Simulated scan of single mutants.
Amino acid sequence: MTEHLTWYAILVFAVAAERAAELLVALRNARWSLARGGVESGGGHYPAMVALHTGLLAGCLFEAALGERPFIPALGWPMLGALLGAQALRWWCVRALGRQWNTRVIVVPGLPLATGGPYGWIRHPNYVAVVAEGIALPLVHTAWVTALVFTVLNALLLSVRIRCEEAALSAGAPTGGGRAPADVRP
């Protein structure tokens, strides 16, 4: 179990590094959006998002180690595949939104609603990636309590986030929305 736990810790740290890369992209894009008259909405729930997503990473490590959770190949390998799929979907979203992608809800007035990439199929595809990641990452190493707690808290947070984002989008563009917010997680 120790060898599997070491590999799992490396995986969790890799996800943390990916998130750091996201934050760098988001910071650059926030500056771009604000320089073009972008307006931020929903800043009040952003610290809760940061705390929840940081808690997911910590919870994965602590539950797997302290709870002596086993690596079960029949569960772990499919969850790793789902995690990788979620990462691919997230970066597809980042690419589709380009400079408008952000971890905050920032709308640049007048920009059209994104309809390319995954946004041509679903309204909030990055949230699909967030939900999948929040289930898959913990379950790679059977951290089911972390998966359950994150999923419930994330559902509550996303209900606030999506309402905030939809209101900002509908107020931000003359044609009913410009997709500047990222459908994101920090």
Rank of each mutant, 00 (worst) to 15 (best):
H141I: 03
T146K: 08
H53E: 09
A9P: 07
R95P: 01
F13I: 13
L156Y: 10
P70G: 07
Q87M: 11
H45W: 12
R69Q: 15
T151K: 04
A114E: 06
A35W: 03
L97I: 03
L139M: 15
A129K: 01
A88K: 05
N126S: 08
A14H: 00
T2Y: 13
M79G: 03
L11W: 05
E18I: 09
N126L: 00
A82T: 14
A20W: 14
R163G: 09
A155V: 08
V184F: 12
V108P: 01
N29A: 07
G44P: 02
L153M: 12
Q100M: 11
V128N: 05
R104L: 14
G81R: 04
I10E: 05
A30H: 10
L23Q: 13
F150C: 07
G172M: 06
A96H: 01
R36D: 05
L56P: 02
E68A: 14
L148I: 08
V128Y: 04
L66C: 06
P174D: 14
L139V: 06
N29E: 12
R31S: 04
A180T: 13
N154W: 14
L169F: 03
A182Y: 10
A96D: 03
L66D: 05
M1V: 08
P78V: 04
A88F: 07
H53N: 15
V107N: 01
Q100K: 06
P181E: 02
T146H: 08
A171T: 08
V140I: 10
P78F: 03
A20Q: 10
L83Q: 07
V131M: 13
R123G: 00
A143Y: 01
L83C: 06
I72Q: 08
P73I: 06
G67K: 03
L61I: 11
V94S: 11
G43A: 13
V39W: 00
E166Q: 15
C93F: 03
E133I: 02
V50N: 08
R69G: 00
V145R: 13
A9G: 14
L113Y: 09
H45F: 09
